[in-house]
Computed example of a mutant assay.
Amino acid sequence: MAGISGHWAFAFGVLGNIVSFIVFLSPIPTFYRIYKKKSTEGYQSIPYVIALFSCMLWMYYAFLKTNVTLLITINSFGLFIETIYVGVYLFYAPKKAKVYTVKMLLLTVVGGFGAIILVTQFLFKGVVRGQIVGWICLVFSLCVFVAPLGIVRKVIKTKSVEYMPLLLSVFLTLSAVMWFFYGLLLKDINIAAPNVLGFIFGILQIVLYAIYSKKERAVLKEQKLPEIQKPAVIVEDENTNANKKLPELTQEQIIDIVKLGLLVCADKVHVATCPNDTNCGVKATNNVENIPKLQTVEAN
């Protein structure tokens, strides 16, 4: 029976590694944008510093245990990728943000983690040391899982899911499920307990996304309805564009056209008044042919 639970624990641990791997890679688009724009654009470094500190804590706890190898593998990757994120942030952040990030690193990674190692190494031994570190990890994980309550509150207040990505919520929920069963099958409450809260908050975020995204689409649809009835404006714009395509005549061309009209009219009158004069037709033809700028008008 113990062998079967061990196999199931290994299976859930592998699935937890896969899902957590995707969660750790989810900020890559954000940092690619930072790299392209050479600026952090108001992004905060706190999530990445806290994630780095969390990975270090779980790594320390895993080394004190004997049956949580898969906890070591995923947190090793998390430690690596979060270090890169913090490094990129420090490279492109403005001076004020850099100073704040360095202070956070000194407070958590150096001060906090260093103090935990010193206290547990010198004051506790054996199994008790592992239990103390486990309880520290449990409390810290609960604080991390409570953090999304700020996003939930913002979604309810603004009635918008703009700041709550659905895919990340789904993967965080799946991660909580996998690690809960991993800890449960290993009978490790320090791993299982925090993920119960993580699962509850994950489901809450997904439900809120479903509710408010549907309302948001309905509002957008209502706002777009009045914009459909605008045929008069479109026709007017087309007429305006058609008028703009007509060539503009210069003052000289207009004078030539007027002269041409007057000459043609004069010749017709002359032909009508002297039908017996054989030179009338010749004069009219010569007058029309001697107009110098007729070809210019036709070309334009």
Rank of each mutant, 00 (worst) to 15 (best):
L172N: 15
I50L: 15
E236T: 09
L105W: 14
I136M: 03
K96F: 01
V177I: 14
K221S: 15
G6H: 11
K103W: 13
A93M: 08
F31E: 07
T73C: 05
S45E: 13
I189M: 10
L172I: 14
F140W: 15
F53C: 04
K215S: 09
L149N: 08
G3V: 07
T83F: 12
L262D: 01
L52C: 11
V282G: 07
V144I: 15
Q131D: 14
A210D: 00
A232L: 04
F10R: 09
G3R: 07
Q121C: 08
L52V: 00
L263N: 06
N239Y: 15
I72C: 03
A115D: 04
P165D: 06
P247M: 10
F91G: 05
G261R: 06
A192K: 10
I4C: 11
Q253D: 03
M56S: 13
V127A: 11
V177Y: 05
P247T: 14
V19G: 11
I206T: 00
V110G: 12
P226G: 04
L185R: 05
N239H: 14
S160M: 01
L57I: 15
E227I: 02
T278N: 07
L172E: 11
K103P: 00
V219R: 13
Q44E: 10
A272Y: 03
I255M: 02
K283W: 02
V109D: 11
V86M: 12
A210S: 09
K157S: 04
E162L: 06
L64N: 12
I228T: 10
S76P: 15
V233R: 05
T250I: 09
I189C: 03
V110R: 08
I81E: 06
L167S: 13
K103M: 13
A115F: 02
F10Q: 09
L249P: 05
P194F: 03
V144N: 01
V155W: 04
E289K: 08
K293C: 04
N290H: 10
